[in-house]
Design a binder for these strands. Structure first.
Length: 103
DNA sequence: ATGTTCTGTCGTCATAGGCG
DNA sequence: CGCCTATGACGACAGAACAT
């Protein structure tokens, strides 16, 4: 993938995180009066903004799910480790009993 | 106290995969 | 095929931990 380099939309967004107000409205109506020819541009901007917002949310949700998944796995590991531990103990005890019987 | 490294979080981009 | 969502990868940033 590699970071775009040629990202032209709004000039190198990939790296402007906090320079742009996070979330929110295009905030760029400043100085641009509403010409009718401006409409498609505004529409495109709005579309982009909506897409970014949705993806932002999706990324949050995705991370939340991933964390939850990892948490579950860790929990499972803990349970299995305990299980393994007690099975080993049981095995040791049984071996012990067996040894005494043979002797 | 200040500089440096580590770690976690966020927003964005690119893209795979599903759906109509 | 075009649209949409989920997710991996990346860079920016902030705060914690550590070294001096």
């Amino acid at each position: 993938m590699a970071v775009t380099g040629d990202e032209t939309e709004t000039g190198g967004l990939a790296s402007c995180q906090l320079r742009n107000p996070p979330s929110g409205v295009p905030q760029c109506s400043a100085g641009v009066s509403a010409h009718s020819s401006q409409k498609p541009v505004e529409e495109a901007l709005q579309k982009r903004e909506l897409r970014l917002m949705k993806n932002r949310e999706a990324a949050r949700e995705c991370r939340r799910k991933k964390k939850e998944y990892v948490r579950c796995l860790e929990q499972r590991v803990a349970v299995l480790e305990n299980q393994n531990k007690s099975l080993m103990e049981e095995l040791r005890a049984l071996k012990d009993i067996y040894r005494h019987k043979v002797e």
